[in-house]
Write a protein that binds this DNA or RNA. Structure first.
Lengths: 142, 142
DNA sequence: CTTGCTGCAAACAGTTTGCAGAACT
DNA sequence: AGTTCTGCAAACTGTTTGCAGCAAG
């Protein structure tokens, strides 16, 4: 799966006439090795600690490329930080965010997805994407 | 309804030992006179054009008070602007956002709310709030 | 008259951008 | 060689804060 993503990104850069650089490889490797929902800062720190000498700006620029290439997705939660999560083909999930420990649990519910489509249709909307987040306390923090 | 809200805010300030000021009255009036989902900047401009001579900082500070007082709610969409919407007692709704014309349609669906609670329970979460946004094209923009 | 509130400007945090040099192709 | 990419620092945007003066109680 990681290999697929690497290939996906490679194909994307080729198609777009972009270059393959050491920095992009490192950032992709580290991004793929992380768990979901990493913030730019967290990612930057991981990269920094790998001694690769890569700047903040490059991390930002590269993450945007990942989004364009379809392998990452931006998520905005309720703190001022943009996070990125992996896009897994065909899969969609939503988030349960614990306001106690900031942990994030993912879930997927087909019935909700269906209802969303019905609601959209009722309003004449053509849905491209959606997001749903629930905030509360997880089992540990209650 | 507007009167109720004014009363609500008044009660809140009294309960918290806060003061009633000209600025807060003006901002509340103008906020209540707006449609849903106003951004801080939009609100500030309306206030400015009313010649009240109120600063940006006061608008921010006052909106936070409204949230605390339970009459406004912060919403974060996919542009860098924080918006505020009116809270109507006991009501909860979600948003359909048109990426074409930026219009926002609200909806409410009880079944989804129920499903959310079930999902939360399944993961041991105690839900305090949630938000759901769907992005796509509205009937006009398709 | 005491304390909270305001306006201003400066500070801040996260993100973006201009540019000179480095590095792909 | 030609052009894209990088790192740095400076710029930007939205939001918050410190402070002196103002105003509500």
């Amino acid at each position: 799966m990681i290999l697929e993503k690497k290939k996906g990104f490679h194909d994307f850069t080729v198609a777009k006439g972009l270059r393959s650089t050491r920095q992009r490889d490192v950032i992709l490797d580290i991004f793929l090795s992380t768990h979901q929902h990493i913030s730019v800062e967290e990612l930057y720190l991981k990269i920094k600690s790998s001694q690769a000498g890569i700047g903040y700006a490059t991390v930002y620029r590269t993450l945007k490329l990942f989004v364009e290439a379809g392998l990452a997705r931006e998520i905005l939660l309720h703190d001022g930080q943009t996070r990125y999560e992996h896009v897994l083909a065909g899969e969609h999930h939503d988030h349960l965010v614990c306001t106690g420990c900031n942990s994030i649990v993912e879930f997927e519910d087909e019935t909700i997805e269906k209802l969303q489509n019905e609601i959209a249709a009722r309003h004449g909307f053509l849905i491209k994407s959606h997001k749903m987040e629930m905030y509360g306390l997880c089992a540990n923090c209650r």
